[in-house]
Simulated assay, not measured.
Amino acid sequence: MHIRPYRPGDADPLLAIFRKNIPESFGQNEIDAYATFLPVNTDPYFVAEYEGEVAGACGYYLIREGNVARICWILADPYRRGSGVGSALLRHVLNQISTHPAVNLIECETSQVAYRFFEKFDFTLHYAKPDHWAPGLDLYFMSREPKGV
């Protein structure tokens, strides 16, 4: 597996992966937000290639004067489930965040579908909001300290 920075040519394969994750992990209503995000995002965003194909992506951005990093738009091809794509992406992003010495908290907004995945990386659930992302997809707000991956 190879992880590299996002390139404009990654948009179509990532949108295809996003669509494969609807409705289990993302709501249909979120596709436009992701499609809008890809060409204008200037924050770090990374793509995983597995066997030469785009297999997922994950990024982060800094908030609160650079003291908090927030994970954004993590997704992996559901046909690659169990291959380690999501874990490799999150480890890479956590390592990138560790290069920012001012960061003292890492946050993520996920759903009941993925929150156990984040728990494996020491994220703690703080609250949930029902039907936040789409009907049946709840918001799970989680955080962790920027310790080792």
Rank of each mutant, 00 (worst) to 15 (best):
I3N: 11
R4Q: 02
R4D: 06
P5R: 01
Y6M: 06
R7V: 13
R7L: 09
R7K: 11
P8D: 04
D10R: 02
D10C: 03
A11R: 06
D12V: 06
A16P: 07
I17F: 10
R19L: 02
K20A: 11
N21K: 04
N21E: 02
I22T: 05
P23F: 00
E24V: 14
S25A: 15
F26L: 08
F26G: 02
Q28G: 13
Q28N: 10
Q28E: 15
Q28C: 12
N29T: 13
N29A: 05
E30R: 09
D32L: 09
D32W: 12
A33D: 15
A35V: 06
A35N: 06
P39Q: 05
V40H: 13
N41S: 10
T42A: 07
D43S: 09
P44R: 04
Y45N: 06
F46E: 05
F46H: 06
V47P: 10
V47I: 15
A48M: 11
A48Q: 04
E49M: 04
E53V: 02
E53F: 05
V54W: 05
V54Q: 04
A55T: 08
G56T: 01
A57N: 00
A57G: 03
G59M: 00
G59P: 08
Y60M: 07
Y60P: 06
L62F: 03
I63S: 09
G66W: 01
N67F: 14
N67C: 14
N67Q: 15
V68Q: 08
R70P: 01
I71A: 09
C72I: 15
W73P: 01
Y79A: 13
R81M: 13
R81I: 07
R81P: 08
G82K: 00
S83D: 10
G84I: 00
G84F: 00
V85H: 03
G86C: 05
G86T: 05
A88V: 00
A88C: 02
H92T: 13
V93H: 01
Q96S: 08
I97P: 12
S98Q: 15
S98P: 09
T99G: 09
H100D: 14
H100E: 15
P101Y: 07
P101M: 07
P101R: 09
P101G: 13
A102I: 12
A102R: 10
N104E: 14
L105Y: 08
L105P: 04
I106K: 03
E107T: 08
E107S: 06
E109S: 10
Q112D: 12
V113G: 02
A114P: 06
A114Y: 01
R116S: 01
R116C: 00
F117Y: 05
F118N: 02
F118A: 07
F118D: 00
E119T: 11
F121E: 03
F123R: 03
T124H: 05
A128I: 10
A128W: 01
P130C: 07
P130F: 13
D131S: 01
A134G: 10
P135F: 14
G136E: 14
L137N: 02
L137K: 05
D138W: 11
L139C: 07
Y140D: 11
F141I: 13
M142Q: 01
M142S: 00
M142E: 02
S143T: 14
S143F: 15
E145I: 10
P146M: 01
K147G: 12
G148T: 13
G148C: 07
G148D: 14
V149A: 14
